[in-house]
Design a protein around this nucleic acid. Structure first.
Lengths: 373, 373
DNA sequence: TTCATCTGCTGAAACGTTGAACTAGCCGGC
DNA sequence: GCCGGCTAGTTCAACGTTTCAGCAGATGAA
């Protein structure tokens, strides 16, 4: 294929040429399949377009008899309102965007996103609203792909997932006064509406689990990239739990990037530099799995030789042997709530409070040792 | 909150400084206009709206000097074309829909879908086209949700994923002459454009692998629901391979629904009814994993006591212990091709041939025994 | 009767974009 | 002096929807 610019031109031209030969086909009255508009319904019922529109909107000034007639004509003709016409006139489109600032592969590939999507679409479907996907393939673009989506008013609001805390575009959208709901915790965006999870508490809980329930004292943490709030919070929860424990604990930190590979590398680093590690707590399950692979390669048994804990519970931790004890993140619920809040926002209702924080809980599996219940 | 870490302090500082320069800008931007249209650009440059439109379309009748002026004004004002206006006028929206006929939970939850999505969005992004998601929350609706999306012309075409062969709505959309690309094999839709995978060959290959490379003779198949073409094809490949083999083989069939639970139940059934089973080939990895759980519960070792094979390779089979030998389905590529074909179709080019079939290959892991290479 | 008020609808004007048809000025050719 | 052809635009009419201002006719009140 050619460079992106070439493709764009091709697309535009094919678009215009299609319109050219579309008219004759439509004029040819080909089985009358040209789409049905208000005008057609109006003609069928014998009233004006406006009356049809008002009847469908259940306007009180239209008589019941007419409304019934309109409705049956609509059903019979199969009329579906044209979304462009409606959006143009009313200034609001019947769709919301879900924005994933990172470049396609990485975040889409993550099951987190899938769960989010399930929740969001469920909520959107209930309101007959479509969901548009938007990634940012190219950060060097003048206007980010997703900003373009919003500013073109193709969507009337957006849910932004997994933005790093340094993402400028988030600010730009907030500045442009667009209805936006952030997923995650954004302590430095006090004005924004966000839905997140209590990562500090989750990480604290699982760390305490390692310390108190399993009596482990030498614990390493594999964190995510520290420009992600999620990674920061999980690390902080880990540190706080250690500091508040009445047991004397030793810890180490290795930084990963949430990928399995980086988890494995971080485990390598930890095992080489810290003696007698008793437990590894990774900031997500993929990195925990990476660590598990490294442990396996070194013939270290989990949980006999070393305990392992993860975070997320999006699927990985359930499948491994041993199953990884992890913090369950209710991603689907997150998505559902984010969507609900967005609809409030689009409707002009500013939710209160603006930050929703969902609790998390630990899913016990076998990677920390026998369940101490 | 608690003792701050070195890295975290850095992050906080960089953030707060950005917040600082944001506030004044927001105050200024608030007073701005709702949104910038062609008219505003035209006024700024001092020419007519159409001239601006034509300049942006790189029309030859507009002089280079004007084009430059228009472009800089666009950049300065931050003009973004209104998608509704454009769609209304040109009769085509700059987005495609991806349609998942099944109800949200089930198919969205499947990693197959995620891979598809990666491929589709990659291709769509390259053309500056948005992707809309559409599921069918309620089959009793008069018009299916996704049909509504298409008929409202919110999307100019659709990719339909994982429809059962009995899905009526597919026919309705094809009849309505909408640009539609089906993912999967649809032998009963000769006129439709589809992208699929050679499941018969894939299942045949892995069955032969069990027979020829591992010398297994008593093989059970756990199929998917037999109203899905995928399930039919994989079963057929299995049978054909057995029939064509010069070895005398015995086989059994249990039908599942592609879920882990059904795989486990099917394995139970097979193990209870067929004596001396040597291998189980499941029609997807989730069912294979279910079978693995059942085998584990019966203290049967894989691969020592029984070989296991799956299909899909979307993640599950890589994570289990032992890793499951499976047929790799290039879902991302499938998505990419489907999108490319859809753009052809929307552009008026009917692809030739209409059915694309991608090859599959076997990913060897440890569930069948030592690699015989 | 006349005025006010309601009911049930119609007509027309937007919304932002595009492209065909037109124009104004200018040049060359006969 | 007229025609054709060029350049660099402008004007205008759509696309399908919603909504606001009318406007007949009916009803009621004075």
């Amino acid at each position: 294929m050619s460079p992106a610019e070439g493709q764009k031109v091709v697309a535009l031209q094919s678009l215009s040429s299609r319109t050219g030969d579309r008219s004759p086909r439509r004029a040819g009255a080909r089985s009358g399949k040209a789409s049905i508009t208000l005008k057609d319904v109006a003609a069928a019922v014998g009233i004006s377009q406006s009356a049809v529109s008002m009847a469908l909107a259940d306007h009180p000034r239209i008589g019941q008899a007419r409304k019934d007639a309109v409705r049956s004509a609509v059903a019979e003709l199969g009329y579906v309102p044209n979304s462009a016409g409606r959006a143009l006139r009313s200034g609001r489109s019947a769709s919301i965007a879900i924005v994933v600032p990172n470049t396609g592969q990485h975040v889409f590939g993550h099951p987190y996103f899938m769960h989010l999507l399930v929740g969001i679409t469920a909520e959107a479907n209930a309101r007959d609203v479509a969901v548009m996907m938007s990634t940012n393939p190219d950060e060097t673009h003048g206007v980010a792909a997703y900003e373009r989506v919003l500013r073109s008013q193709a969507a009337s609001g957006a849910i932004i997932a997994s933005a790093s805390i340094t993402d400028l575009n988030v600010n730009r959208m907030l500045d442009a006064a667009m209805p936006v709901v952030l997923i995650g915790r954004f302590p430095h965006q006090p004005g924004a509406v966000s839905v997140g999870v209590d990562d500090v508490a989750g990480a604290g809980a699982i760390t305490r689990h390692l310390i108190d329930a399993h009596g482990l004292r030498r614990i390493a943490h594999i964190s995510g990239p520290l420009d992600h709030q999620t990674a920061i919070d999980r690390y902080e929860g880990f540190c706080t739990a250690l500091a508040e424990s009445d047991q004397p604990c030793t810890h180490a930190l290795a930084v990963g990037d949430f990928s399995e590979e980086s988890g494995r590398a971080a485990a390598r680093q930890v095992l080489d530099s810290m003696s007698d590690v008793q437990a590894i707590f990774a900031a997500n399950d993929e990195m925990a799995y990476g660590a598990l692979l490294e442990l396996r390669a070194r013939r270290l048994k989990v949980p006999e030789d070393l305990a392992l804990a993860g975070y997320d519970d999006f699927g990985v931790s359930r499948l491994t042997t041993p199953g990884i004890t992890t913090v369950h993140v209710p991603a689907e619920d997150l998505g559902r709530r984010a969507a609900a809040l967005l609809f409030d926002l689009v409707g002009g209702v500013v939710p209160h409070p603006t930050h929703t924080v969902l609790p998390v809980d630990i899913t016990m599996r076998d990677s920390c040792g026998p369940h101490p219940d």
